[in-house]
Structures are given as structure tokens and as C-alpha cells.
């Protein structure tokens, strides 16, 4: 699997996810600057976490209009798998590749901690290595991760199996207490309709090796390798 990571001004998890991808694939990852026009032939394109353009205007709004995003949108529409993590998720939303929006956390605080997530759909290229309904521990670090969409959109994405992860308790209960940022229906990550695009607020690259304290994030990268190798 050949992966490319897009680097925006203010990305700060680009090198972390590069390490995770190279660990999973044993292949050098392409790092692609936001001002470039083309992405080298890739099986996977990753939009990393960070604070691109200082979160000016709205998180991800400026990056979503950057030059490279034309190539990302073209690739996405052709079915190339795209993974957006945290700020990458915000950029995918602002680019119109995923439904809904991400608002300021309901508690107004920056939340930086390990979150428990319930895997809602383990039949995609991103999650096939997780068991159905698995509860996984993945760190979050964001100020604007409060997923919002109106009821019609939510019902539609639920019906189509587009909810990837929900914030849950360690025991796997999805309730208000586990909802770290006020997201509607505890949504932590979603797919597009054809499920070649995943956006998620939690950071799987931060917990993918035992030396980091956990490996729950590794299955996501291994799922992709298994699907796309």
C-alpha cells in the first residue's frame, strides 16, 4: 500500500501518521505540500491532524480551498481511499466530502485525553481488523470536534452505515457521560456514502505501538494494508 500524507501550514501530526503508516506498510510515505497540484499515485491519501492556518475562519476552512485539495477531491470522487484525522476530518467536512459539520466542543474546553470508541461498522477497508462492536481506546486532542448535522442527515448516515465510531464508556455504552464533546449521537467518525472516505476526531496514530502505551490504533492502519496492499 502506497500512502501519501498532505502537509498543510500548521499540520502537526503529519510526521506521526507517517511513522504509523511506514510501520504498517514498510514503505516510504509520500509527503505532499498543500501548494502542490498533483499527488503521486497513491492507494491511500491521509489528511493529518494539526491546526492548519491557525484554525482561522473555521477549522479546516482555509485548507479545504488549498490547491492540493482539488487533486484530493478528484481522487476521492474516483474512489481513492481518504483518511482525515482531527484537523484532517475538519478539512474533509469543509471540502464537502463528508456530511455535517464540526463545532466548538459543547464544554468549550480543549479536550486532550484517551477516549473510548465503539466500532459501529467493521465492514469497511478502514475497520475490518476490528471485531464488530469492539470498544477501542484512542486519544483525542481537539477544541472543535462537536459533530453536528440535522436529524434528516443523521438518519440518512445511520441508515447507510456511515457512522464509523461513537464515543462510549469503557464498557461500550454510548451515553451522554461518554460524549466528550457534545457530538450528536456521540459520533466520533463518519464515512462518506461509498465508504472510501473516513473522517475521525480521535488520533489512531498516537496509540499504534506498545511503546506508546497501546495498539488499538494499529488495527486501523493494518485494515487498510490488508484491504489495499
Amino acid at each position: 500500500m502506497q500512502a501519501s500524507v498532505i502537509v498543510f501550514p500548521g499540520s502537526n501530526c503529519d510526521r506521526d501518521v507517517k511513522v504509523s503508516l511506514e510501520h504498517a506498510t514498510s514503505k516510504k510515505v509520500n509527503m505532499v505540500w498543500h501548494g502542490d497540484s498533483d499527488i503521486p499515485k497513491s492507494d491511500l491519501i491521509v489528511l493529518p491532524g494539526g491546526f492548519s492556518y491557525g484554525d482561522y475562519l473555521r477549522c479546516g476552512a482555509i485548507s479545504a480551498k488549498s490547491n492540493i485539495m482539488k487533486a484530493v477531491i478528484t481522487a476521492a470522487n474516483k474512489g481513492t481511499p481518504i483518511l482525515g484525522i482531527c484537523n484532517g476530518f475538519q478539512i474533509l467536512i469543509e471540502a464537502g466530502l463528508l456530511p455535517g459539520t464540526l463545532m466548538r466542543n459543547a464544554g468549550l474546553k480543549f479536550v486532550c485525553k484517551d477516549a473510548y470508541l465503539r466500532v459501529e461498522n467493521n465492514e469497511t477497508i478502514f475497520t475490518k481488523k476490528y471485531s464488530a462492536g469492539a470498544v477501542i481506546r484512542i486519544p483525542v486532542a481537539h477544541h472543535d470536534g462537536n459533530y453536528f448535522a440535522d436529524d434528516d442527515v443523521l438518519d440518512k448516515i445511520e441508515d447507510n452505515g456511515q457512522v464509523a465510531f461513537r464515543y462510549a464508556t469503557q464498557a461500550g455504552e454510548v451515553n451522554d457521560q461518554a460524549n466528550i464533546n457534545g457530538s450528536r449521537r456521540n459520533i466520533a467518525g463518519i464515512y462518506n456514502e461509498s465508504k472510501n472516505i473516513l473522517g475521525m476526531m480521535p488520533h489512531p496514530e498516537r496509540l499504534d505501538q506498545a511503546i506508546l502505551g497501546g495498539t488499538d490504533g494499529a488495527h486501523l492502519f493494518n485494515s487498510l494494508v490488508n484491504s489495499l496492499a
Binding site: 463545532m103 466548538r104 466542543n105 459543547a106 464544554g107 468549550l108 462537536n146 453536528f148 440535522d150 457534545g182
Partner: peptide, 9 residues
Amino acid sequence: GVLDPQGKA
């Protein structure tokens, strides 16, 4: 209908 936690604070 969109929650405004900042406005509330």
C-alpha cells in the same frame, strides 16, 4: 436550532 455554547457562556 444549532447549539451555540459560546453564546451561552
